[in-house]
């Protein structure tokens, strides 16, 4: 056993070197769909591991050992639809940078973590949803003159390293200076301190921060989204059965009011009316 494992590691290392030398390196490590997909796992084990954010008020916030927010509510709806009790859900904290690897390696079964569907990510994971359409926006002090992304020239913008919003600033708004941290709460603190002029990410994330008690009345969301961020539910690339099942569950949730309830129990608390879930867009499954 020890020898075989060593041999395997060694073999893999040499292989890695070979790969490094000649490129490529697609590993066919993913298990196949069907019974080993989430549908199979949910029916057999009655358990699901769901990756969520832990530091985003209103969406995915860890308070003690419990998680709260819109993403959490969506996660519960999906789990319920798959026949898993709430007690069978294991929440796992993910950050923007580790969602794909978590899914690919099976660290989590699903990711509901402000996870934007895009083509690049579709290459490696499968997306149910979108369950919400967000848009990149700016959070600025109430007295700020910044009115949109065009006004960012020479300004300092903060975002989370490795996130889509950070990349968009780097590529589309090169005149802005980008400050990156590992969490939005640090960005918001820097904004409060005046070290950065704006924080950028999806509007609903920003709204969650703006609504926090200690920042009440200090910040505003500019309100001119300059991108469309369809939030999806990530799962293994080859699990199309699970993906279709998720879309069915979402459709049912839109019809029976549980989607609206999920909103009202989290982000809706600040008074914003629940959005309509456009079920015609549930078509990202590979």
């Amino acid at each position: 056993m020890r020898i075989t494992r060593f041999a395997a590691t060694f073999g893999a290392l040499t292989m890695a070197l070979a790969v490094a030398a000649c490129g490529g390196g697609d590993s066919e490590s993913g298990s196949s769909g069907g019974a080993s997909g989430i549908v199979g796992k949910a029916t057999n084990d009655k358990k699901l591991v769901i990756g969520v954010k832990a530091d985003q008020p209103g969406l995915g916030l860890q308070t003690g050992s419990t998680y709260t927010g819109f993403d959490i509510e969506i996660g519960k709806i999906i789990a319920k639809g798959l026949g898993v009790e709430e007690s069978g859900i294991e929440w796992k904290t993910t950050v923007s940078a580790n969602r794909e690897p978590y899914i690919q390696q099976g660290q989590v079964d699903l990711v509901v973590a402000t996870y934007t569907i895009n083509d690049e990510r579709k290459k490696v994971v499968n997306f149910g949803g979108p369950y919400f359409i967000a848009g990149q926006d700016l959070l600025v002090p109430v007295d700020s003159t910044i009115t949109g992304p065009e006004a960012l020239k020479g300004k300092k913008v903060c975002s989370v390293s490795g996130s889509t919003p950070a990349k968009r600033i780097q590529t589309d708004y090169k005149d802005a200076q980008l400050q990156q941290f590992d969490s939005y709460s640090k960005c918001v603190t820097a904004l409060a301190g005046g070290q950065v002029d704006a924080v950028t990410t999806d509007d609903i994330i920003l709204a969650g921060y703006a609504a926090q008690e200690q920042y009440a009345g200090k910040f505003k969301v500019v309100g001119k989204p300059f991108s469309e961020e369809p939030y999806g539910i990530g799962l293994k690339k080859d699990d199309s059965e699970g993906c279709n099942k998720i879309n069915e569950i979402l459709k049912a949730a839109a019809a029976d009011g549980s989607y609206k309830k999920a909103w009202d129990d989290s982000l809706g608390k600040s008074g914003t009316a629940a959005p309509e879930l456009d079920t015609t867009k549930l078509a990202n499954c590979a």
Binding site: A16, A20, G24, P101, V124
Partner: peptide
């Protein structure tokens, strides 16, 4: 604190090239 030194550089490359983590 956001400087794109080599650990962040490695992270960025790995994020963009998930299949080439080892090299």
């Amino acid at each position: 604190i956001g400087l794109m030194e080599s650990s962040n550089a490695m992270k960025e490359l790995i994020n963009a090239n998930g299949d080439a983590v080892i090299p």
